[in-house]
Amino acid sequence: MLQVQERETTAAEVFGHNVRRYREKQGMSRFRLATNAALDDRQIRDIENGTHNPTLLTMERIAAALGVDMPRLFEREQDTPGAFPLAALQPAFDRLPLAEQGRVLAVLRLLLQVSKE
Rank of each mutant, 00 (worst) to 15 (best):
R30L: 14
E6C: 10
Q3D: 15
V107P: 07
S29W: 04
Q113E: 14
A87R: 08
D46V: 02
N49V: 00
E6W: 09
D79W: 04
H17T: 13
Q78R: 10
E24H: 05
G16I: 00
E48H: 04
S115V: 08
M1G: 11
Y22K: 06
V68A: 04
I47L: 01
A88C: 06
R23I: 02
S29Y: 07
D94V: 08
A92H: 13
P81Y: 01
L33F: 03
A12N: 14
L2V: 13
D94H: 11
P81K: 03
A99M: 06
K116N: 13
A11C: 03
A37R: 01
D79V: 06
A64E: 11
A12I: 07
L108W: 14
T80G: 02
L56N: 13
L56Y: 06
K25H: 13
D41C: 07
P85R: 01
K116L: 09
Q26H: 04
R21H: 07
L66W: 01
L110A: 12
Q43P: 01
D69E: 13
V19L: 02
E48A: 00
Q90A: 10
D46S: 08
V14W: 05
F74Y: 08
R7K: 14
G82M: 08
G102R: 07
M70A: 15
D94C: 08
A88T: 09
E117R: 15
Q5G: 11
S29V: 06
A64F: 08
D40L: 03
M59W: 04
D41W: 03
L57D: 13
L2I: 12
A63G: 01
Q5I: 12
R20V: 01
D46C: 03
E60M: 10
E75H: 09
A83S: 12
G50D: 01
A87G: 11
M28G: 00
F15H: 06
D41T: 12
A87S: 14
L33Y: 03
R109M: 12
L39G: 02
Q113G: 09
A37S: 14
L66Y: 05
A92E: 11
T80K: 07
R21Q: 06
G27A: 01
V68W: 04
R72A: 07
L112M: 13
M59C: 07
T58R: 02
E6T: 14
I44D: 00
E24V: 04
Y22D: 04
P71G: 02
M28C: 02
G16D: 00
Q90G: 11
L66S: 05
F15D: 02
T80D: 06
T35Y: 11
R76V: 07
D41M: 09
R42M: 08
D46T: 09
